[in-house]
């Protein structure tokens, strides 16, 4: 498929799913009634539901999905490893640990930006650890093992802090930090996260040329004038900004960054510079679809997003491992 056509098709899909996300919810609203309320602000309660409950949810679904897709594509491009993904290598859980620390120490209550900044710090530390442990030339095994260790440690930290919280509800929320949800998010969360999500994706999108050159190997890339140190720094910053802010408001949603680039890679001729924008759109579509699905499956309960993305994502993960094993053999 021609590249602009692919982007157009993906963008259309995102627009459709965004609208669908606005129209699905536990309160049964008429199609015309709800869209009219959203646009014109006519009809008190319906306007509240549309503008303060469903709109922020749809915006976050789009933006969080987009950064998960793009950061997966960027990490895979830089490490030249199809298994690199923020959820699998522990970046998301580390961001969750940062967020939980900010919330439970009361830092987030005293200073608004503390929540995303602390999550960002957690994400940044784990990206540094991953790059250090797996290395730019590290094999799949080192990457996955490092990821397993970091995820387990960060998840244990989250569980420990929430279990020790004086708040009886905190311990129940371990599931949110592990599985992610967009339920009951508000425009406050959008305002808090969106600037970071945009800045992070903008940084990651600039990596296209460098990642293209890297497909030829590090030496060739440097010969082409790509400064690897700079690419690495931008990757760390971009991933930390976007995954940190995404996790701070939506928890950990795994596998989006794995599945989406994997599906789209053959369609863009395996060029990272093309895969980045395509994965942003693909990720947005996948998360919006998952968020519509959780509300259709269980309208009155908060079914977690990560449940659905893992059901779709794990078989992909197994398939990738199987293929890599065959290639190594």
């Amino acid at each position: 498929m021609r590249y602009p056509l692919l982007l157009l098709a993906l963008a259309l899909l995102v627009v459709l799913l965004f609208l669908l996300s606005l129209l699905v919810g536990p309160a049964a609203l008429g199609l015309g009634e709800s869209l009219r309320a959203l646009v014109t602000g006519q009809g008190e309660a319906v306007v509240l539901v549309m503008r303060e409950i469903r709109l922020p949810r749809a915006i976050l679904g789009l933006a969080v999905g987009a950064v998960l897709g793009i950061s997966g594509a960027a990490m895979q491009g830089f490490l030249r490893n199809p298994l690199a993904e923020p959820g699998l290598v522990g970046v998301s859980s580390s961001a969750a640990l940062g967020a939980v620390i900010a919330l439970q120490t009361g830092l987030a209550a005293s200073f608004t930006l503390a929540l995303p900044l602390s999550a960002l710090a957690g994400a940044a530390i784990s990206v540094l650890l991953i790059l250090g442990l797996a290395g730019p030339r590290g094999g799949a095994l080192a990457l996955i093992l490092a990821g397993v260790a970091i995820s387990a440690l960060a998840a244990a930290g989250v569980a420990l802090i929430l279990n020790l919280s004086p708040n009886p509800f905190a311990a129940m929320e371990i599931v949110f930090w592990m599985m992610g949800s967009l339920a009951d998010r508000s425009m406050t969360h959008v305002a808090l996260a969106l600037p970071f999500l945009l800045a992070g994706s903008a940084l990651l999108l600039t990596l296209g040329r460098g990642l293209d050159a890297l497909t030829l190997g590090e030496d060739a890339a440097e010969a082409l004038g790509v400064r690897l140190g700079r690419v690495r720094l931008l990757l760390i910053l971009g991933t930390a900004l976007s995954v940190g802010a995404a996790v701070a408001v939506a928890g950990t949603v795994g596998f989006v960054g794995l599945v989406v680039p994997h599906i789209l890679r053959p369609l863009v001729g395996a060029r990272p510079s093309r895969l980045l924008p395509a994965s942003a759109l693909g990720g947005a579509a996948m998360l919006l679809a998952a968020d519509v699905a959780v509300r259709v499956i269980a309208p009155d309960r908060d079914l977690k997003l990560g449940v659905l993305t893992a059901i779709v994502g794990s078989p992909f993960f197994l398939h990738l491992i199987w293929r890599m094993r065959r290639m190594e053999a």
């Binding site: 509240l48 409950i53 129940m172 929320e173 009951d184 406050t188």
Partner: peptide
């Protein structure tokens, strides 16, 4: 509210609920 933070109680600050 209980001491300490939780998402469960953060729901009480939701702008839609405030409006109601």
């Amino acid at each position: 509210p209980y001491p300490g933070a939780s998402r469960a109680e953060e729901l009480m600050d939701h702008p839609a609920l405030q409006a109601v």
